[in-house]
Amino acid sequence: MKGRILDRVAEATRAHRSVALATDLITGRQLLLDGDTAEGDLTLNDAALARLREAWRSGRNRTIESAGGRIFVEVLTPPMRCFVIGAVHIAQPLSQMLAMADYAVTVIDPRGAFATEARFPGVDLVTEWPDEALERLQPDRGSAVVALTHDPKLDDPALAAALRSDCFYVGALGSRRNHATRCARLKELGFTDDDLARIHGPIGLAIGAVSPAEVAISIAAEMTQILRHGKAAETA
């Protein structure tokens, strides 16, 4: 692999862009597809190029058998992101667990007393209001949004922003009753029942979690389930 390709992949990852890398498994020659541009020392015919683009769009790795030999196509996607609203106790173990699971975690809380480096060493902390922060950070289909403050002033705008994005997971801490009143408030903002069904509330898998770390495990587990199995895999 040329250093130039390695640098281009790193650049795309930082910009939250997926790229597709085609490698000739005999010669090692490579071609990197990044949006409309392709660069490298591997030449592909139109049919193989089309299949490279197809792999990039689908996000799936594959091997292409072409006249010139076997070409391995790998789609390199940026790490998933998780936006945690509320620099609360549960957010502390949750941000560490998600970092271990290769998420890029951002904790958002305008209350300076909570969002401190001492409480969240090494974590990306944002002290803007959640809706402003999410407007800037643009959650996408590789993102999860988790609302943990219990405070409608902070959670609601974040959930509204999350529902307007195509993030793969939205969760909100709170009892069934709190969740029902939250849904009623969001409905007044114009969200439909289908929108509100995207919110996991009460948040997390029902594993009887009690301590903040246990609740964090249940949230991380539910997020993983949705990511890997999709909504259909959920048990009633």
Binding site: V9, A10, T13, L76, P79, D102
Partner: peptide, 28 residues
């Protein structure tokens, strides 16, 4: 706990430090 981005970053760091580096990838 090391995903692809982190592994490629490490490869780049080793290379910048002047080390020889190889990457192994499961292809099939």
């Amino acid at each position: 706990m090391s995903d692809t981005a982190e592994i490629l970053e490490q490869a780049a760091r080793w290379r910048e430090a002047g080390a020889g580096v190889a990457l192994a990838t499961v292809v099939t």
